[in-house]
Amino acid sequence: MRFIVCVKEVPESIDVKIDLKTNKLQEEGISTTLNPFDQFILEEALKLKKNEDEIIAISIGTPQTKKVLMKCLALGADKAILLSDNVFIGSDSFATAYTLSKVINKIGDFDIIFCGQQTVDGNTAQVGPELAAQLKIPQVTYVESVEKFEGKKLLVKSQTDDGFKIVESQIPVLLAGIPPSSFTPSLPPLRNIIAAQDKPCIIWNFENLDGPKDKYGSVGSLIQITKVYYPPPREKGIMIVEEPITAVEKLIELLTKDKVI
């Protein structure tokens, strides 16, 4: 079996700032990490992996994205591929999915594609389903766990708007994963971090993929961001520091005065 896990490098803190001179997001100098949703789904993939199986982690990013791919290798992936090229800059979810589909087609046969449900920065939750559509394979999103994998059939538990469902799927399939509340990301032990140095981490650029240049990056994107800005600040709130009974009275008075209730 071959499993492919799509991972993204994201800022460690989502408290990012806008550069008021360029009106762009300040991306330099902030510390980054593996998108937690991607780490979760990678760990699900690792649970399914038997000896003869191969797990490949792929990411589109900058040269420094190698860091998160090394983490994937330390966590247990067998091989990593980094796509890094100025041509890919400014991709929307459609162009990102297109690029990933080209990489995956180049890798060749696969059985399951794993994505995070969403990233903590862009948070579109679109790359997974858009990729599945481009690869023409079924998808299951909001996957909380893989319950069973036998032969060519997979049973997964996935969240719904009012609970959960158990879905049976054929392979190949794309799973987009969201951690259940019990999930804590594991830290790879030092010896695995060292061993990861010997695993292949390949770097590809635009030249390594087929497909016309105008399908990639901002040129290949279908949406355009016209402006980024801070939301209007919430009005400064009123703090009530009183004995409970007085505090409650005061709150109700304020809520009534402000017509909240």
């Binding site: 997001l25 903590v120 948070n123 016209t226 939301p231």
Partner: peptide
């Protein structure tokens, strides 16, 4: 909203 709800982005679909 992007980056949690810390930043807002205005988006258009120019051609499709």
């Amino acid at each position: 909203p992007v980056y949690g709800d810390n930043i807002l982005a205005d988006i258009i679909c120019p051609n499709t």
